[in-house]
Write a protein that binds this DNA or RNA. Structure first.
Length: 326
DNA sequence: TAGGCCATCTGGTCCT
DNA sequence: AGGACCAGATGGCCTA
């Protein structure tokens, strides 16, 4: 389906806990795991959709009512960290968490421990939720993450791709500085390139300098720009490919193209019905339909992935991810 | 069905 | 003391 939204909905990275919990409770049954509460707490096999993120008042209210979030099935939502689980439907534990936490844990009653555990769990859940939000934000600014035919990047793929993307942008910037300095006669005005002299000259990019259009394209690397329409992006990519495809950026040995090319295995096909967005299975020069429509002309899809070592993201280093492409 | 990915729980450690 | 961070364990969902 889609890259982000639908997938998020299909398996929410972090459920709106309050809503889900309330809904769940009102239904009297768990969301069946689909909601994101895979339950599964460590030792207690009871699917414990423990109440997520309960507001303090809600917690108090439930505590006062003798209701424990997650006792929906009568089974303990959480096994008490102090061994004895049993009564999930804890007896009225009206004691406040704050007061209970001040005691020694050994002195705490079971309900108090449960309250504390809930509080800690809730914090952790929120922390992970925030982390996922940040991860989604990162996905949004990554190329490859927007095509309807491209499935949501996994966390590891997002991080690795982001790293390479940054490297590529850095190299592009340096190259642009250098080219500008050459075009305008070297060392002038506001564009004095700090990189001048630090970067070796690459023939393809010099050629690009001779052809402004190509140079322009080369500075819009063969990345599917999130903003440009597919056609424009494809045109730019094609031009860039002509100028850059064979160019390993100086200094790093990092190919401008490959630097951001994610191992195709990092991208997962949303469905078998969609023309394999990752290209022909094994990642060999397939036509990656980044936008779910036309075959991608960009160099990323046309040029076999050079072996770059800078990123540390070579497919060989990610056997697991690579195998995904199959 | 196996493997990948993920959410959650949990206990420990470090920091403020 | 309390919160943040981390890693291990567990189980669910999805895809090949």
């Amino acid at each position: 389906m889609d890259s982000d939204a639908s997938l998020v909905s299909s398996r929410p990275s972090s459920p709106e806990t309050d809503d889900i919990f309330l809904t769940t409770r009102s239904k009297g049954s768990s969301s069946g795991g689909g909601g994101g509460f895979s339950g599964g707490t460590v030792s207690s096999s009871t699917p414990n959709d423990c109440q997520p993120e309960l507001s303090a008042e809600l917690r108090n209210a439930m505590g006062a009512a003798g209701v424990h979030p997650g006792d929906k099935l009568g089974g303990g939502c959480f096994k008490s960290s102090s061994s004895t689980t049993s009564s999930s439907s804890s007896t009225s534990s009206s004691s406040s968490v704050a007061s209970s936490t001040k005691k020694d844990k050994k002195q705490m009653t079971e309900p108090e421990l449960q309250q504390l555990r809930l509080k800690i769990n809730s914090r952790e859940r929120k922390r992970m939720h925030d982390l996922n939000i940040a991860m989604d934000g990162l996905r949004e600014v990554m190329p490859y993450a927007h095509g309807p035919s491209v499935r949501k990047l996994s966390k590891i793929a997002t991080l690795l791709l982001a790293r390479n993307y940054i490297l590529m942008l850095t190299n592009s910037l340096e190259e642009m500085k250098r080219l500008v300095s050459e075009i305008y006669g070297g060392h002038h005005a506001g564009f004095h390139p700090s990189a001048c002299g630090s970067l070796a000259h690459s023939a393809p990019l010099q050629a690009a300098a001779a052809h402004p259009a190509a140079a322009h394209a080369s500075h819009h690397p063969a990345v599917h720009h999130p903003i440009l329409p597919p056609a424009a992006a494809a045109a730019a990519a094609a031009a860039a490919a002509a100028a850059v495809s064979s160019a390993s950026l100086p200094g790093s040995g990092l190919s401008a193209v490959s630097s951001i090319r994610p191992p195709h295995g990092l991208l997962k096909s949303p469905s078998a019905s969609v023309a394999t967005p990752l290209g022909s299975g094994g990642g060999g020069g397939g036509s990656f339909q980044h936008w779910g429509g036309m075959p991608c002309p960009c160099s990323m899809c046309q040029v076999p992935p050079p072996h770059h070592h800078v990123s540390g993201m070579s497919t060989t280093s990610l056997p697991r991810l690579t195998s995904d492409a199959k």
